[in-house]
Amino acid sequence: MIEIRSINKSYGKLRALDNICLRFEENKIYGLLGRNGAGKTTMLNIITGRVFADSGEVLMDGNPIPENDQALQQLYLTSEKTLYPENMKVKDALKWSKQFYPEFDIEYAQKIATQFGLDTGKRIKSLSTGYTSIFKLIIALSVNTPYILFDEPVLGLDANNRELFYKLLIEKFSNQPFTAIISTHLIEEVSSVIDHIVIIKDGCIIRDESCEELLSKGYTVSGTAAKIDAYICGKDVLGIDSLGGLKTVYILGNIDADIPEGIEVTKLNLQKLYIQLTNL
């Protein structure tokens, strides 16, 4: 289990992370969601000890992670920025990965590279944005560490390769469970894949619960403006969409037992909920 205890991090005047507390349990898929600049990358970099927090602790099974080789070897983070030498060939990067991570499955890596259509003889710098992402994903899927962190994994991937990535991820997870943390702003793609959702906004955690729990907490009502306005009085309203005399309102809370006539109630889907939660 990875535990984050009251992490703070500022860049100059910008509070990148504000008193973050989180737990990542074993063998679950987490979605770390937030808009661009919300603090997702900073958090992942702090977990993996690439960046230091101003205060707070990051623990793996109770032991601090930073500067702890044993803990660091249990983690793999695919960063948005490529940290592999530009001039290195993909196949050499795979060979080195095997050196660094004894559990790295080089045959599997080569197999999925073929599936993605990545030529392993190429140099890393010559790869397009999409294939640079694919290159990192291939290593992440083959590395076999207990914790795999994906920062914007599908950046620049076309629809087919995105689908292939999620398929491989689930296949891998089903065959040999691990903890995955997927940082993304594309909720529609991960909503069916993740167990647990963490929503981060302006450096603060605004939601940290299982997808099911979160979904059960919100609902949508729609109807004529007058009726809706009367109904939502005193309720925790997340957002309102108006269209002429009709209104759709996203509400956080349990559905009332008796809904007034003329108001239609539907469950909230994750994507709508997320957009409402992270709107400014």
Binding site: G49, E67, Q73, L77
Partner: peptide
Amino acid sequence: REPFVMLLQNGFSRKS
């Protein structure tokens, strides 16, 4: 720079 970031990517502490 190059080996430093590469080794950080691959789970090494700065000490190592």
